[in-house]
Each structure stands twice: as structure tokens, then as C-alpha cells.
């Protein structure tokens, strides 16, 4: 049944083609111009005294800065996990045939995407003014859990609630885009095998949707890393808060912002690496050709290149 007779045609295997690659002077010229510009920017930055590089070095590993960076990383991880779970639930609700679930999800997304994150931080922080007592129980009926908002709504708690509820709204749209990108034939094939709706979602739709969901989730993670700095308004001791606290005393504003920026860049780089490996994992089975590796891409600068896939 399979084609195995092909081998008879070529009795001798000819040598591989050894051709002179096409010369690409344009590429070299372009690269040269960019390098010259980059070098002059670096020179300007390094030699300018106002940047205060010695102060940067002095505070780069200051324990307050480090604790701020850890707070950012920790909060991002926590709020992102909750945001993704919340977003997935909201996306499934939004796509469900139940009009109540659909509308509830729509309203949630509308509200949290439509108001500034800054306002949401302050709102959660001041929630005790709205609800002096927290009671959980039957609506209009007896309540089972009583709590003092002051013990729940700490600075950390308010920042976490604001970030994760806000992220849930954004992730809901990301996950929904992923789900509707999976062809309907996939769900039908799974249904015809007897899988129920939950099984179809978990085993067939979501794994394929991940390919579409991951890149914008990387974006979301990076946004969140930086948006946490807004939580400084309610006094959350994250990276920017710590840096500004220090320059409020020593007036070295620029060097400390550079310190903070270096750490933000380092943290976002971690997100890049995570995204790269996750994308490779969920991309399995979707492409015939292996994607070009970093090394191959750099080599193609000089060599013929240009052809082939990607």
C-alpha cells in the first residue's frame, strides 16, 4: 500500500550541489549602518556623567531593590496563574449556550477592561469602606463566614485581587480567541467518538488553542510585570516603589530608575525564555519543517539563504 518502489530510479547518487551563494551586499551594508548607530548610542550613554553609572552599580544589588524585584516576580506568578484560570472559566462561560453565563461573562469583561487598573488598585484597597463586614452565605439569607476586611485586604491582598481579577478579563478574550481558532471539525470528531463536552474541551480543543493563546499570554505576563509598578500608589513595596523610596532620600533619580529598568528587563527576559520553551512544546505536530534555530538564522546573514521555509 505504501510507495517503496521509488529507490529503483536513481542507480548512482550524484554529488550534492556546491554552488557559490548569491552575494548580498545590501545585507552587509544594512548591518553596518545599524552597528554604527548602535555604537554611537552606546558611547553617548556610557560617557555621559549624568547617567551616574557608579551609583547604578552601587544600588543594583541593594537588598531593598532585590526584595522589590522578588515581590514583582512573586506577584506576577501568582496573579497570572489566577488570571489564566479565571480567564479560561470566563471564556468557556462566554462561549456556552447558557445566556445567563454568557451575559455574566460579558459584563465582567466589560467592567474590568473598561476601567483603569490604577482605579481598580485603589478600589480594592478601599473596599472596607464599602463593605465594613464580609459575610459569605445565602444572598438575603443566613451567612456562614464572617471576616474583618482589614485582615483580608492588606496591601498585598488588594494588589493581588486587583491584578488577578483584571488579568482574568484580558485572558478571557485571549483564551476565547484560542478556542474559536480550533476548527469545528475537531469537536465534532471528538463528539462522534463519545467524548463529553468537558473531555472535548480538555483533551482536544484547549491543547490546540494553546498555540494561539500562548503568544498573547507572553504579552500579558510582560504587561503585568510592569503594571505592578502602578500598585506603588497603594504602597505595595515592589521594584519601582523601592527605587523611588531610595531616590526620595538621595536624589539620585536617574540612576535608580536605571537600576529598576535593568531589573525589569531581566524579569521580562525570564518571561521570554519561558514563552519560547512553552511555544515549542505546544507547537508539536503543527508544522512539517523544523523551525530554523537561532544559529541558522544568524548564519543566513552571510550565506545565500533567503529561500526555504520561514
Amino acid at each position: 500500500m505504501d510507495q517503496t518502489e521509488l529507490t529503483q530510479i536513481a542507480p548512482e547518487r550524484p554529488d550534492d550541489i556546491k554552488a557559490v551563494p548569491v552575494r548580498r551586499p545590501g545585507r552587509w551594508l544594512g548591518a553596518f549602518i545599524v552597528l554604527v548607530i548602535a555604537a554611537s548610542i552606546v558611547r553617548a550613554v556610557v560617557t555621559n556623567k549624568n547617567f551616574g553609572w557608579s551609583v547604578v552599580g552601587q544600588y543594583l544589588f541593594d537588598h531593598r531593590i532585590i526584595s522589590g524585584a522578588i515581590a514583582v516576580l512573586y506577584m506576577t506568578a501568582l496573579a497570572m496563574v489566577v488570571g489564566v484560570i479565571l480567564g479560561t472559566i470566563l471564556a468557556i462561560m462566554r462561549l456556552s449556550p447558557n445566556p445567563v453565563l454568557k451575559t455574566a461573562s460579558w459584563l465582567y469583561i466589560w467592567f474590568f477592561r473598561g476601567t483603569p487598573l490604577l482605579v481598580q488598585f485603589v478600589f480594592w484597597f478601599n473596599i472596607k469602606a464599602l463593605f465594613p463586614h464580609i459575610d459569605l452565605g445565602v444572598p438575603f439569607g443566613p451567612s456562614f463566614i464572617h471576616a474583618d476586611p482589614n485582615s483580608v485586604i492588606t496591601v498585598f491582598g488588594a494588589a493581588f485581587l486587583a491584578l488577578s481579577t483584571n488579568e482574568g478579563a484580558y485572558m478571557a478574550e485571549v483564551v476565547r480567541a484560542g478556542i474559536i481558532s480550533v476548527p469545528e471539525g475537531q469537536s465534532e470528531a471528538a463528539a462522534s467518538l463519545g467524548l463529553n463536552r468537558l473531555q472535548i474541551m480538555r483533551k482536544v480543543v484547549l491543547p490546540q488553542a494553546m498555540r494561539v493563546i500562548l503568544p498573547p499570554t507572553g504579552n500579558e505576563t510582560i504587561s503585568m510585570l510592569k503594571n505592578i509598578s502602578i500598585a506603588s500608589v497603594i504602597g505595595f513595596a515592589e521594584l519601582y516603589y523601592q527605587a523611588s523610596d531610595i531616590y526620595a532620600q538621595n536624589y539620585e533619580t536617574i540612576p535608580l530608575l536605571i537600576v529598576a529598568s535593568i531589573w525589569y528587563l531581566a524579569l521580562t527576559s525570564i518571561a521570554y525564555v519561558g514563552q519560547y520553551f512553552l511555544e515549542r512544546k505546544v507547537g508539536q505536530g503543527f508544522s512539517r519543517s523544523q523551525q530554523a534555530t537561532m544559529k541558522e538564522r544568524w548564519l543566513s546573514l552571510g550565506a545565500g539563504g533567503g529561500g526555504g521555509l520561514r
Partner: peptide, 25 residues
């Protein structure tokens, strides 16, 4: 829905566009 799914187990279906799950071997 659960009973419908159960009944579908006993009926095999083959589609024009194959509809294999691409993320699985």
C-alpha cells in the same frame, strides 16, 4: 447530553476532512 455521548460511542464516523487531532500521534 451524557446519554447522547454514550450512544455516540457505538457509532463510528469518518469525515471528508479526516479531522485527526493534530497535536497527537
Amino acid at each position: 447530553e451524557r446519554v447522547v455521548a454514550q450512544k455516540r460511542q457505538e457509532i463510528g464516523m469518518v469525515f471528508q476532512s479526516f479531522n485527526l487531532f493534530p497535536h497527537m500521534t
